[in-house]
């Protein structure tokens, strides 16, 4: 085939486009995931949560969480009119099997799903003596279970009570924001199975992520802001009594 000038001019842009596809790879075999291009967080809409416990069950199945331990759990708040400062909080079996009907339906009743807040300035990673827990370059607080000693410093340091010692491995365990899923382009297991969309995975570095519009237009809060942890789990419609 002799290449004329005209043919070359047609071929060059086509080859450039083809080369881009080669570099990007197919989604399955080469995820082409760049940690520097993401900054993960989560959005939780308390006004949407129905306390069905789907997220708790899905999390346990996705991450092999042992019974009686929770990477995510749901709390039911009962705030009476006269004791706003002292809400009654319950979480039977982490909310895994839903919640029984309240005996006292007066006052305010609502569900608050909890999980690791994936703090940007996390207290738990700072106390690890061996560097087994860390904030990854894409903003997820992870535990290297092959390197963890199980000293429990981080369990004590977390102000949100999100860590536990896994009885199988005897190492620290916590929500990984389904790191094995989000790096493959999927959403977290809890967000995947939330029937009302109360949980949304959010990429704060992606300018097209709807989180930015949501944060602009809603009065969104984080848990324990006075501790300056840089928590990245945002709660919409959160009552002042939530701790």
């Amino acid at each position: 085939m002799d290449i004329t000038r005209r043919r070359l001019l047609v071929l060059l842009p086509a080859a450039a486009v083809a080369w881009e596809f080669v570099r990007a790879g197919t989604p399955e075999s080469a995820p082409n995931y760049k940690t520097s291009e993401h900054w993960w967080g989560m959005l939780i809409d308390i006004t949407e949560c129905i306390g069905c416990g789907s997220c708790v069950r899905a999390c346990a199945q996705e991450n092999d969480v042992p019974d009686g331990y929770y990477r995510t759990w749901i709390e039911r708040y009962h705030v009476t009119d006269y004791a706003i400062e002292r809400p009654q909080v319950e979480s039977p079996n982490g909310g895994k099997e839903g919640f029984p009907m309240n005996e006292d339906s007066s006052g305010k009743n609502f569900f608050v799903p909890k999980l690791c807040n994936h703090c940007a300035d996390s207290p738990c990673t700072q106390v690890c003596p061996v560097g087994a827990t860390f904030v990854s370059p894409d903003g997820v607080v992870l535990v290297d279970k092959n390197y963890c000693l199980g000293c429990r410093y981080c369990v004590q340091a977390c102000p949100y009570g999100c860590r536990f010692i896994n009885p199988k491995t005897n190492t620290a365990d916590k929500c990984s924001l389904c790191y094995h899923r989000i790096t493959k382009g999927l959403t977290t297991a809890c967000a995947e199975v939330c029937p009302t969309g109360a949980r949304q995975l959010a990429d704060l570095k992606n300018p097209k992520d709807p989180i930015h519009e949501y944060l602009r237009t809603h009065s969104v809060q984080i848990l324990k802001p006075h501790m300056a942890t840089g928590a990245k789990v945002f709660y919409n419609g959160m009552d002042g009594s939530v701790r």
Binding site: A58, G131, A132, F134, L142, D144, Y147, Y179, H180, T183
Partner: peptide
């Protein structure tokens, strides 16, 4: 160790390699 910070850099790939349970 120390590839990205004070931790084992390979741990990130190990955690990401876990198989998924929910297909999506």
């Amino acid at each position: 160790f120390g590839q990205y910070g004070h931790y084992r850099g390979d741990a990130i790939a190990e955690l990401a390699a876990r198989p998924v349970a929910h297909a999506g």
